[in-house]
């Protein structure tokens, strides 16, 4: 991993004296898939917001391509890094294609209109998330899974190297969650996007990630590849619960699943 794309050094955050992040350091190489795991309130979303300059870096440093994120103009940063926020209650009153076109903002002039190239990028993103037939639908007429695919497409439209995702499968049923993970896998495919994903889905993180970052009470308790994560039994310590490993009897070669067990192993 020569020359990390994204480099976080000693990042801390304590608004109004309340410590949320403390001395978090990790790096993301080009083409990597890093998942951020940790219990609720561990500071995962806050960390992601620091990576994308949605919160100012007060302690430590966040560097993108060797340069502090604070030194980038907003538009420039938006051409390098895109962000898929957590699904919230509010749904803007836009149609799918019209909404995606708005995400070309970092490439548009204030009084200019989107050109054929911008429209082509939107069509391409729609095809990538298999939502082309939904292009004229209003966002609030879509299901949660469909809408999440549109929001991922909105990040794709920005044509960035890095995509940051905040719990992309929250509120989704297992089938739609699976679909989102397959989509992320395709985006990440060799030569594709560098991805940082905050998630609660341990098994998806293990399957997709090149490295895992584990946060607990604002501190990084582990950063490394999934094999080390499993060998060190980090999962049990991270959630203060013993996890059990399950294999599919019909497919012993398939990936095992880890679920919290009732008693200590």
């Amino acid at each position: 991993m020569t020359g990390a794309l994204l480099d976080v050094m000693g990042l801390g955050y304590a608004p109004e004296g309340k410590r949320v992040l403390a001395d978090v350091s990790f790096d993301v190489g080009e083409g990597e898939f890093v998942s951020v795991l940790g219990p609720n309130g561990a500071g995962k979303s806050t960390l992601l917001k620091h990576l994308n300059r949605l919160l100012p870096v007060r302690e430590g440093a966040v560097r993108l391509q060797g340069r502090s994120v604070a030194d980038y103009a907003f538009r420039t940063l938006a051409r390098l890094q895109s962000y898929v926020p957590q699904a919230k209650g509010y749904i803007p009153p836009y149609r799918v294609a019209e909404f995606l076109l708005m995400n070309r903002f970092p490439y548009l002039q204030a009084l200019g209109a989107p050109g054929p190239r911008d429209r082509a990028v939107v069509e391409d993103a729609l095809a990538q998330v298999a939502m082309t037939e939904f292009r004229d639908r209003f966002l609030d007429t879509l299901s949660g899974g469909e809408r999440q695919k549109v929001f991922i497409a909105a990040a794709v439209v920005q044509e960035t190297d890095v995509i940051l995702l905040d719990e992309p499968t929250t509120f989704l049923d297992p089938l739609h969650a699976q679909e989102i993970y397959q989509l992320l896998g395709r985006l990440h495919a060799p030569g594709g996007k560098t991805i940082v994903m905050v998630t609660h889905d341990v098994n998806a993180a293990l399957a997709l990630s090149s490295r895992l970052l584990c946060l607990k009470a604002g501190r990084a308790v582990f950063f490394g590849p999934p094999a080390d994560f499993l060998a060190g039994r980090i999962l049990d310590r991270l959630y203060d619960t013993p996890f059990r490993r399950y294999e599919c009897p019909d497919d012993p070669a398939g990936p095992p699943a880890y679920l919290p067990g009732r008693s200590a192993p």
């Binding site: 994308n52 949605l54 907003f74 836009y94 909404f99 548009l108 920005q158």
Partner: peptide, 24 residues
């Protein structure tokens, strides 16, 4: 206002969302 219409489009989605798209 017309100058900032593209910004308004994204601000309507959310402040963080707009900022991550390059809106100051």
């Amino acid at each position: 206002v017309r100058w900032l219409c593209l910004d308004l489009n994204l601000i309507l989605v959310g402040d963080d969302f707009a900022r991550s798209r390059g809106v100051d």
